[in-house]
Design a protein around this nucleic acid. Sequence first.
DNA 1: TATTGTTATACTCTATAACTATA
DNA 2: TATAGTTATAGAGTATAACAATA
Lengths: 155, 155
Amino acid sequence: MDTKNSVTLTPVQRLAHSELAGEIEFLTARMRSQGSTRANLLLAPLGLKVRSYSVLSLACSDLAPTQRELAEFLSLDPSQIVPLVDQLESRGLVERVTSPNDRRTKVIAGTPAGQDLYTQARKATGEAEEVSLKALSAAERETLRDLLTRIAFDA
Amino acid sequence: MDTKNSVTLTPVQRLAHSELAGEIEFLTARMRSQGSTRANLLLAPLGLKVRSYSVLSLACSDLAPTQRELAEFLSLDPSQIVPLVDQLESRGLVERVTSPNDRRTKVIAGTPAGQDLYTQARKATGEAEEVSLKALSAAERETLRDLLTRIAFDA
DNA sequence: TATTGTTATACTCTATAACTATA
DNA sequence: TATAGTTATAGAGTATAACAATA
């Protein structure tokens, strides 16, 4: 395989100097692939994935999101929210609360059991983030969070 | 809908203060969703998507990647590379060049037509990136690129 | 015996349209 | 007439295992 004169490089190291590797789109795709794989792995023992975790997180906030809001915020179609909420509701983690003002809209609210699970799940995603960002200093992590926030919401 | 006393907020603005919105994993997911949608849109007139564009880009570099290397670098399974290369090859954009050293491995090489199309496609992804990062200064963009590169490759 | 590329298959995710009940 | 949620369905993407050719 390797001769004495050839330096051993992994495919990733070898192609890391490509023009593609300099594109933000590619870098975020790679980061996201690694990050979500890791997060899903750490959430699996709790019966959650990144998607269901995101819904649970918002349901357990004090923002009382409707399904429509969840869909828009999570960049999902409203029809995709239905089975996510169904699953969490069947486990007693969230409830569909029909709005008194408009009986069409349903606010998704976390139950006490949901709050408990969310607390554990938040630790898991925190660990996943810690691993993902281990190459960065605390200051760099805050810089990254600021830049990503502006891209995600200022646009 | 809105009374005189309620400030009109989009769902995204309203939920942007959630704990979830502070998580890197969520921010990259959102950025990626927006970015790949935009890139796919700009690549569509050329008959490419982000995936096939990535393969074409590496094939047109001077790195002579094998299919195995493409799979690892693009975080895909080797079996997913096959139809991507098939499609590009059928359009005469890339060629499978059997390695003289090891007749199992096939290097994916861009043809002149592939190089031409890549030049156009690179402009399209450049425009997409420009739109994605429009909220950031030039210096901030370089900072972001540096941070993402370290996360994607130092890990 | 291990590796590259390939094929086949099933599973998840995503996108679209149509339906209901409310407004 | 328009909107929130739901259902149904098809398409794209993803993961897995097994296979042939080559090392």
